[in-house]
Structures are given as C-alpha cells and as structure tokens.
Write a protein that binds this DNA or RNA. Structure first.
Lengths: 118, 118
DNA sequence: TCAATAGTTCTCGTATTATTGAACTAAGTA
DNA sequence: TACTTAGTTCAATAATACGAGAACTATTGA
C-alpha cells in the first residue's frame, strides 16, 4: 500500500454513487453482481456505471470476471483491509518504536485498537 | 456516521495533498500542528493549505484551536475510527443476523476481522 | 448472417475543484 | 498608532470530473 494507491482508493470512494456501488458489492458478498443488476439497483445509466467501475477497477477496489455476455463484479475486501491497516499504521510513527514492533504484525485488529488510542 | 458523512470524509482524503495533511497530523499526535508549520513541512502555500483544512474541518476530520495568533490543528482520530467501523459494518448485511449481533458491540477490532472474512 | 442484448468507449457540455495572487482580519509588538 | 506576523477569504483562471447521448465491441441466439 503506497501513498498514491491510498489516494486512488479514497478517490474511488469519494462520491455518493461510488460509495453506493461499494456498499452494494459488499452486500452481495462472494456472489458479486453483474453490471446490469447494479445499474438497475442503483438506477444509474449503464455507461455512467461503467465509468465509475473503471475507476474502482483501476484502484483495485473491485475485480471483474467475464460470464458469458455478462460481467460480474466483486468487491476487493482484502484491499480495504490493507487500507485500514495503512491508515492505522501512520498512527504508529509518533509512538515508541517498541510499540510499533509489537503491533506491526499484520494484525489489523491491534492496529485499529492502537489507532483509537492516538 | 451517515452515508453522506462518509462520502464527505472520503472526499476530504481524496487528494495527495490532503492525505499528506492527515498523515502529518497523525504523526504529530495530541500535540497537533500549527498551520504555518504544516505549510512549511508540506511546502504548500498558506492559502492553499487553508483551503484544504477548511474542507477537512467541515468533514470533521480535524479540529482547530486558537493559540494566540496561531491556530493549532489536530487529527480527529475518533472519527476515522468511526469511519472504519462504518465501512466494516456494511459488510455485515450479507452475513447472518446472529453474527451481526455478536460483532455489533462497538468493538472495532472484531468488525475489522469480520470484514476481512467477507 | 442478422438481430438482440450486455457492456464499454467516445464526445461534448456542464459543474465542481484546485491553484495563484491580492486583499483582508486578527493578534502581537515597537 | 503603526508595523509585523499568522491565517483566511476573495476573484480569476486552469484543470478535472460527471453525466447524457450516440457509436462501438462482443456475445448469444434465431
């Protein structure tokens, strides 16, 4: 997770429509959703949806899989998890190195807890 | 945490400059930083910094305190914590209600763990 | 091969956003 | 009071993003 990647992810969620898209995909879980279903559910034009999905794909927030003549999209929850870790890791810099080493174990849980203590 | 508030927060972080501002404030912890220090550290014009800080203030991401002729800014880490919780809560919708009840205890830690299992 | 469907890309008009320089307000100081 | 410093606001410009319509590609099926 680089600074530019983090910026890209925030850009990918920095509009009501894209947050809606994200939440819709989160709700659909592993099944994901086909583009047409999403356009109907969110009541947005297919080309507009495609525009936003492209940006989210570029940021890595969603993945896509061809399915006959459909395209199925899924939320990349692992990346969101990485983002949270990244945002909480920044918090560590001002802490003692000892605490950093204890919490820099890839355990997102402890990162989040440390974060709230900042 | 509402959907619009979440959108506002993402907008507040959806640029390299603002992410830099956020990280700078995170690093400074409870001390926070005076606007002039931040402008120097980030090498951006004071009025440009003011522009971005205003947006971040509006989103609630930072707080400000008058200090003589200076203004001291601090990161609102509690809100970031809320945002993380909100983003992970969305994940719950597709899960069983039982699991939701178990994890909807305000414990950001378990939310994050549940999230990565989505 | 032709038509229909799913989705993307292109183009254009509009609206929002960022940056810059100048003016402005407020607080400290000689 | 006048001057300096800190920070914000304003105005103009440039850049960027969004949405709508039309055209395009690819897959499916008659």
């Amino acid at each position: 997770m680089t600074r530019d990647n983090a910026t890209q992810i925030f850009e990918s969620l920095a509009s009501g429509v894209r947050l809606d898209i994200w939440r819709l995909l989160i709700k659909s879980g592993q099944n994901g959703m086909v583009a047409g279903e999403m356009a109907s559910a969110l009541e947005i034009a297919p080309n507009s949806l495609s525009f936003h999905l492209k940006a989210m794909l570029h940021a890595g927030l969603v993945s896509v899989e061809q399915e006959g003549r459909f395209k199925r999209y899924r939320a990349n929850t692992a990346l969101m998890s990485d983002l949270i870790t990244y945002m909480t890791e920044q918090c560590c810099i001002k802490q003692s190195d000892a605490q950093c080493e204890v919490t820099n174990t890839g355990d997102i849980c402890s990162s989040a807890e440390r974060y709230s203590d900042c």
